[in-house]
Amino acid sequence: MIGTLIKAEWYKLKHHHIYAILIIGPLLTLLIGMLNPMMGDMGAYHPWLSLFLFMNLPYALLFLPLITGVIACIICRYEHQAGGWKQWATLPVTRTQIYVSKLILIALLVLIIQMIYGLVIFIAGTVKGFDVVFPYWTVGKFIIGGWLATFPMIALQLWAAMHWRSFAVAFTINVVFTLPSILAINSERFGPFYPWAQPFFAMYVDESMSGMLFIPISQMLLVTGGSFIVFLVLGIATFKQKAI
C-alpha cells in the first residue's frame, strides 16, 4: 500500500516542475565552486578537499535545508488547494500510511539531490583540471551521511507543510530553523546538538575521521536519530488529530 501511495504522490509532483527544484541547489553550488577566486590559492592543499570545503558550506547549510522545505510544501500543496485531504479520507488507507508515504518520497528526492551534488563535485573538479584521482569513497560518505542527517528536517518540515495551508508559513518555519545553523557550527558546545547543523557536520570532510561517516556514530544516533523520532511521532500524532 505504501508503494502505491508513493507512486500517487510522485504523479502529483511531476506537475510542479520538480525536476528543476531537484537540480537548482547543486547547480547554484557548482557556480559558487567554479567562480570562487580562493580556489586558485589552494595549490598547497589537496584540491578535492579544498573544493569540498568551499562547496559544502553554502550547500549543506542553506541550499539543502531550504530545498528540502520547498519539496515538503509542494508535496502537500495539492491537498491544501484541491480538497485532497477529504479525498484521502474516502480511501481505505490510514493517516499514518499517508504521512509515511509522503515522508519516504521526500527522503528519496533528497537522496537524488545528494547524488546530483556528488556529480556536480566531479564536474567542478574536472573542469578545474584536478590531477588527483576523484575520491569516490569520500564523496560517497558525505552523500549518504548528509542524506541521513536531513531526516529530522524532513520530518519537521513535512509536519509544518501538512499543518498549515500557507506555503509562506511552512517555509518561514524552515528558514527560522536553518539560519541559526550558521552560528551553531561555530559552537563546539551547541553545534553538535543542533539538528539543522548535522548535514554540514556529516559532509565536513575530515581525513582523520575513520569509519563510515565523518561524524561519530553516537552523534548520528543521539542527535539525528533522536530528533527524527521525536518530530516523526509528533507529526503523525498531529496529523491524526487534523480536521479534514
Rank of each mutant, 00 (worst) to 15 (best):
A155G: 06
V132T: 03
F200I: 09
L158M: 04
G83D: 01
T90D: 11
R165N: 12
T150H: 03
W164Y: 15
Q87L: 11
F151A: 07
F167W: 09
F200A: 06
L179V: 14
A155Q: 05
V132H: 08
W159H: 15
G83Y: 07
A184W: 08
Q81R: 08
V100I: 12
I106P: 15
M203N: 01
L119P: 08
A161Y: 11
L156G: 06
F142E: 07
E188K: 11
N174D: 10
R189C: 13
F201K: 02
I143N: 10
I113L: 14
R189K: 14
I143W: 06
L111R: 13
R165M: 12
Y117R: 02
S181P: 09
I116D: 04
G83T: 00
L156T: 11
E79Y: 00
N174H: 00
L109C: 14
A89P: 08
Q157V: 11
E188I: 00
G140W: 12
Q198K: 04
W164T: 03
Y117C: 08
L148D: 10
G140T: 11
T178M: 07
V176A: 09
F167N: 01
G140C: 11
L148V: 09
L103G: 02
Q114A: 05
A155Y: 03
Y117P: 04
G118L: 10
L156I: 15
L183Y: 06
V169K: 15
I144E: 01
L91K: 09
W85G: 09
M162A: 06
L108G: 14
F151R: 03
L156P: 01
F190Q: 07
S166E: 11
Y136L: 14
I112W: 04
S187H: 03
I154V: 11
V139A: 09
V205P: 04
I154M: 10
A107G: 14
F193I: 01
G145D: 08
T126D: 15
K128W: 08
G129Q: 05
I98H: 03
T126G: 15
V93F: 04
V110H: 12
L158P: 04
I106R: 12
V93R: 05
M115H: 12
F171Y: 14
P152E: 12
I112Q: 02
V127W: 11
I116C: 01
A89Y: 05
Q87M: 08
S187E: 00
A149S: 08
F200W: 13
L91G: 09
I113V: 15
L109I: 14
A197C: 07
V169F: 15
F167Y: 08
I112Y: 07
Y117A: 07
A160L: 14
A161P: 04
V133Y: 11
L105P: 12
F130V: 11
F177P: 07
L148E: 07
Q198V: 05
H80C: 05
Q87R: 11
F190Y: 12
A124I: 13
I106W: 13
I112H: 03
K141D: 04
Y99E: 09
V175F: 03
A107H: 15
T90F: 06
V93Q: 01
W164G: 06
G125E: 15
I185S: 03
P192Y: 08
Y194N: 00
A82T: 01
G145C: 07
E79H: 01
I173R: 02
